[in-house]
Design a protein around this nucleic acid. Structure first.
Length: 419
RNA sequence: GUGGGUGUAGCUCAGUUGGCAGAGCGCCAGGUUGUGGUCCUGGAUGUCGAGGGUUCAAGUCCCUUCACUCACCCCA
């Protein structure tokens, strides 16, 4: 083995690669039914976009970005998340000057320079959705419901939804100060003490038991919400309940990125190793302004495609996929037959019948094995005798029944037999 | 950045006290010169992660190093 994939990355191979395609489709389908348009943005952006949009206080920006200079000396960064790019694209193309909200969805690669472990890779995939320019609890609820529907449509039953509100620019500062005061009185290591000053809410997320034990009496943001945030959050919750989407209030739920306000939520699953989030999002009312745009209250989420795959694996939902399975398999005997089979397959494929054949001059036995393994129901056997008769032997591999079919009629005969 | 575990055939792994490099699966071929699956027979594939050391002898013991993996941190 000479080369291998870079650290923290991996290849999707058949058959699991088929499941990944299915996951992307399933997560996106509810969005398309709800009027979200597809957006595709560059995989790299101006480094400053992420510094400003995601926040310099976050670990994502301060130590996990793939940043590099291009040949003209510009600093570019492989996107570590999708929201900043989407907001940038909306502002750049003035999509927000039309009817609001602007509803967009995307699917693609994200990159973070982290130490890899189960469910956390340096290159990962997300399906995301953003609804920009509208402050309406129904929009928050809509997105959450669409995410939940996506997971449910894959058969996932153990995805749990956690919901919280982080307050807004009116009530968050007072809460932040109260939390900082509480945290400063605890016995914590230097890194965590530094985090108290930069991003105190994240301390609530610490998984270490000795830290969690000290957090039992910590002030909770729900107790510090202003009236507007409180009623907004109540409305979101009641819409979720009315939609039949089960959720759990988690007053400790915070998000890793700076731009979140008010509604925040996470879809969690127990089958991902030590990681738990299969998706998450929330409202980010101030992000547009941070990026130099007008006020554009918005809400969005991102769901982890590879993490969803792991969740499905944990729930035993990955059936026996049959990658590249075809309906018909050609078994040519000899060079003349191979040339004729090649043309016959093209004809079948044009007619909408999926077909493969034995390559490499295999013998009959080897070619028949290939037919068996291809998953095809029918084999087409073509040798010198058949060529002379302008016919082919059509064998049903499930019954071993074999009939001779004139070459000119193969497509028509098969059309009647496959599906 | 920190800590644990694992590196032997394409894959999953065994390998005892240091004594000839192994199994299952997969792959290829034959049994059957124009017929797959099941079965039988045979075959190919190894820098035992790499480098050094101890020893008559190292997959095995010691040192170094790399990779993978899991967890902390962080996050989808």
């Amino acid at each position: 083995m000479s080369f291998q994939a870079p650290k923290g990355t991996f290849d999707w191979l058949p058959p699991s690669s088929e499941a990944i395609l299915a996951v992307r489709e399933a997560l996106a389908a509810p969005l398309r039914r709800a009027g979200y348009g597809y957006v595709e943005t560059p995989v790299f952006e101006d480094t400053e976009l992420f510094k400003r949009g995601v926040g310099e206080s976050t670990d994502v920006v301060s130590k996990e970005m793939y940043t590099f200079p291009d040949k003209a000396g510009r600093s570019l960064t492989l996107r570590p998340e999708g929201t900043a790019s989407v907001v940038r694209a909306v502002l750049q193309h003035n999509l927000h000057t039309g009817q609001l909200p602007v509803k967009l969805w995307y699917s693609g690669s994200q990159f973070r320079y982290e130490r890899a472990q189960k469910g956390r890779y340096r290159h990962f995939w997300q399906v995301g959705a953003e609804a920009l320019g509208s402050e309406d609890p129904a929009l928050d609820a809509e997105l959450i419901v669409l995410g939940a529907r996506g997971f449910a449509s894959l058969g996932l039953r153990q995805v749990k939804l956690l919901v919280n509100s982080l307050g807004d620019k009116n009530c968050r500062p007072a809460y932040r100060a109260a939390l900082q005061e509480f945290l400063r009185g605890l016995d914590l290591d230097a890194d965590t003490r530094a985090r108290i000053e930069i991003n105190p809410l994240r301390v609530l997320d610490d998984k270490r038991p000795e830290v969690q034990a000290q957090l039992t009496g910590a002030p909770l943001v729900v107790d510090h919400l202003c009236a507007a945030c409180k009623s907004y959050h109540e409305e979101v919750r009641s819409l979720l309940t009315a939609s039949g989407v089960a959720f759990e209030d988690d007053p400790r739920l915070v998000r890793g990125l700076d731009y979140y306000t008010r509604t925040t939520f996470e879809f969690v699953h127990g089958g991902l190793g030590s990681q738990s989030a299969v998706g998450g999002g929330g409202r980010y009312d101030g992000l547009s302004e941070v990026l130099g745009g007008p006020p554009l209250p918005s809400v969005g989420w991102a769901l982890g495609v590879d993490r969803t795959y792991l969740a499905m694996e944990a729930e035993g939902l990955l059936g026996e996929a049959a990658p590249g399975r075809v309906q018909v398999y050609g078994v040519p005997l000899g060079d003349d037959a191979r040339r004729r089979m090649f043309l016959l397959l093209s004809e079948l494929r044009e007619a909408g019948i999926s077909a493969d054949m034995a390559f490499g001059g295999k013998g009959l036995k080897g070619a028949m094995k290939g037919a068996d393994r291809s998953g095809a129901r029918f084999a087409l056997i073509l040798g010198e005798r058949d060529l002379a008769a302008e016919a082919v032997q059509l064998k049903d591999l499930t019954t071993a029944e074999q009939t001779e079919v004139p070459l000119a009629q193969v497509a028509d005969v098969l059309k009647g037999k496959v599906q």
